[in-house]
Design a protein around this nucleic acid. Structure first.
Lengths: 220, 220
DNA sequence: TCCATTCTCAAACAACCGTTCGAGAGCCCC
DNA sequence: GGGGCTCTCGAACGGTTGTTTGAGAATGGA
């Protein structure tokens, strides 16, 4: 093939085979995060990615399998980052971090990644959507794969030895509720409610507010 | 038409005209609450209600209009009950109820209605779903119609005069997050996490736990 | 009794969905 | 240079979706 032809139309380079799959993955994550799972068709994804319609089924098997692969990869990354911060907090405090540091390890990764300037902003939106709109397979995973949450529950039990375990689990549930409710629509409501007095959410300020509230709840 | 024929097949009584609309409404609410908004077709609804397929469009205009009417009626009922409890709390405390009573007025109606024995259990599930899976029209309503929340914000401002209003709004946002996260799937996760040690949720115990946690957060 | 209104019903419509198929292009290795 | 493998592409398939249509039954008032 001559140079002239290759200049007119993109030819397949060695990376292209993997490139198509990666482009489908990225386009799907972006569209799902923005418009919801049910409102995005396979045709939307392939059009956005600039690839053929059959690519989704060829590379991922099915639309649901593609959704699940995005979900699994992104939640794994999030859990890894949380575990890393919890581990660092344990190192700082001789293996027994206080409630405040545990909550920071739980809240900070999703909040920091939600920053408009952060590249993983889309991934956080995707994960949030998966919690409510996800396939039954996703919800089943969220329901039964709690090993990563167990680390946080154990750390809280060590930090609050006087508190019954049942209380710890419930309060962890409440803290996660505070976090998962942070959608964009809810921020708008807050803005309307305060007649515009509430600033646009800077994530570090929000993180501090959430930790303050949840810490008091755990120490009650 | 003879008596024999009318015994074989149900004839139209005077109430029947309204009955069809009510049956569609009830069947739609039940199916949407159980299976999600996108996973229920008009055919599912009319089959469950035992009416003709065209009934939905005839009585409600469209599927989305039916959804929105259920949403509007149920949220209005919920808001009314919350306002009633807040009003009662104000009467008990000379017009200035403490944080604890305000939180109870906010949490108790949806929690009590979630009780398996309560007839409005389905309605609560529907409302919860509307918050995440709802039409854009529903979310717009949730976003802009905050008049009912303003009553609670004002009561909290009166109860916590030393706290900046911006903090009040944020902490109200957190408290609502705790509440809205109470889905059935999340309860399952809690159960798995605690190795079955956590009892089945009795709503009064859960209500007390939530108020304890949120009250401490507000008083922090 | 007759007309107008309201409602039900079976059938069809057009659009969109996820998935599959067969042909063919490009590539590597023998 | 030829066979095998991977991947892309346009086209089509079967199914489901929300909505519309036109005819007919039942009802209430004149």
């Amino acid at each position: 093939m001559s140079d002239i032809d290759s200049a007119e139309e993109v030819v397949l380079d060695p990376e292209r085979e993997a490139a198509t799959k990666a482009q489908v993955f990225a386009a799907a994550e972006r569209l799902f995060a923005l418009n919801g799972f049910q409102n995005v068709s396979v045709r939307d994804i392939t059009a956005e990615a600039g690839v053929n319609l059959a690519s989704v089924n060829y590379h991922f098997g099915s639309k649901d399998a593609l959704l699940y692969e995005i979900f699994r990869r992104r939640t794994a990354e999030m859990n890894r980052e949380r575990a890393r911060m919890l581990h660092q907090a344990a190192d700082r405090h001789g293996g027994k971090p206080p409630v405040r540091d545990i909550l920071e390890a739980l809240f900070a990764p999703p909040l920091r990644w939600s920053n408009p300037a952060h590249e993983r902003r889309i991934s956080v939106q995707f994960i949030i959507r998966a919690r409510s709109e996800g396939t039954e397979a996703m919800k089943e995973t969220l329901r039964t794969d709690v090993s990563h949450l167990k680390r946080f529950a154990d750390a809280l039990i060590a930090a609050l030895p006087h508190l019954p375990r049942e209380d710890i689990y419930w309060r962890l549930h409440f803290a996660l509720g505070m976090l998962h409710n942070n959608r964009f629509a809810e921020f708008d409501r807050l803005h309307v409610l305060s007649d515009g007095a509430t600033r646009e959410a800077d994530v570090d300020g929000l993180l501090r507010r959430m930790i303050d509230f949840a810490e008091a709840g755990f120490l009650a």
